[in-house]
Simulated scan of single mutants.
Amino acid sequence: MSQLENRPVRMVFTTRAGGVSQSPYASFNLGDHVGDDPQAVADNRARLAQILDLPQENFVWMEQLHTNNVTVVNKAQDTPVEATDALVTTTPGLALCVLVADCVPVLLADHSNGVAAVAHAGRMGARNGIIPNTVNKMIELGAKPQNIQVILGPAAAGESYEVPESMAADVEQHLPGSRATTKQGTPGIDVRAGLVRQLMGMGITNIDADPRDTITDEDFFSYRREGTTGRQAGVVWLTGKEA
Score class of each variant (00 low, 15 high):
72 V>T: 11
108 L>G: 07
120 H>L: 09
118 V>H: 04
125 G>D: 05
74 N>P: 05
120 H>C: 09
57 E>G: 02
135 V>D: 02
92 P>N: 08
133 N>L: 06
144 K>V: 13
40 A>M: 06
111 H>P: 14
59 F>Y: 12
55 P>D: 08
59 F>I: 08
110 D>P: 04
148 I>W: 02
89 T>I: 01
143 A>I: 08
45 R>V: 12
47 R>W: 03
82 E>H: 04
84 T>G: 04
42 A>E: 14
54 L>E: 11
143 A>K: 02
133 N>Q: 13
82 E>N: 07
62 M>P: 09
98 V>G: 06
63 E>G: 14
122 G>D: 15
37 D>R: 05
83 A>I: 08
87 L>R: 06
52 L>Q: 06
120 H>I: 04
77 Q>I: 07
67 T>M: 05
105 P>Y: 10
120 H>V: 12
63 E>R: 12
117 A>G: 14
37 D>H: 01
58 N>E: 10
62 M>T: 03
56 Q>E: 15
72 V>R: 09
60 V>P: 07
111 H>L: 03
44 N>T: 11
138 M>I: 12
49 A>W: 09
99 L>A: 13
140 E>A: 08
147 N>S: 12
66 H>S: 15
105 P>A: 07
100 V>E: 14
79 T>A: 13
111 H>A: 15
81 V>F: 03
143 A>N: 05
74 N>H: 02
92 P>W: 07
117 A>F: 07
83 A>H: 11
105 P>R: 03
44 N>M: 08
144 K>L: 12
124 M>G: 04
44 N>G: 10
44 N>C: 09
137 K>T: 15
117 A>K: 10
110 D>T: 08
143 A>G: 08
37 D>E: 06
49 A>T: 11
79 T>G: 00
90 T>G: 00
148 I>R: 05
36 D>K: 02
47 R>H: 14
114 G>K: 07
111 H>V: 13
104 V>W: 09
95 A>T: 09
131 I>N: 05
110 D>V: 05
111 H>S: 15
91 T>Y: 00
80 P>K: 00
145 P>Q: 01
84 T>E: 01
70 V>C: 03
105 P>H: 07
102 D>K: 12
64 Q>M: 15
76 A>N: 03
131 I>L: 15
76 A>F: 01
48 L>S: 10
137 K>F: 00
89 T>Y: 01
44 N>E: 08
90 T>V: 12
93 G>C: 04
63 E>M: 12
137 K>Q: 13
44 N>R: 07
106 V>Q: 06
110 D>R: 00
54 L>M: 13
40 A>D: 12
50 Q>L: 13
64 Q>A: 15
88 V>Y: 01
97 C>P: 04
121 A>V: 10
46 A>C: 02
107 L>D: 07
54 L>W: 10
132 P>M: 02
89 T>G: 01
63 E>P: 03
108 L>R: 04
49 A>G: 11
90 T>P: 02
92 P>M: 04
47 R>C: 05
117 A>Q: 08
138 M>Y: 08
81 V>E: 02
124 M>F: 13
131 I>D: 04
136 N>F: 10
75 K>E: 13
67 T>D: 06
116 A>V: 07
46 A>P: 02
110 D>K: 01
69 N>H: 11
77 Q>E: 10
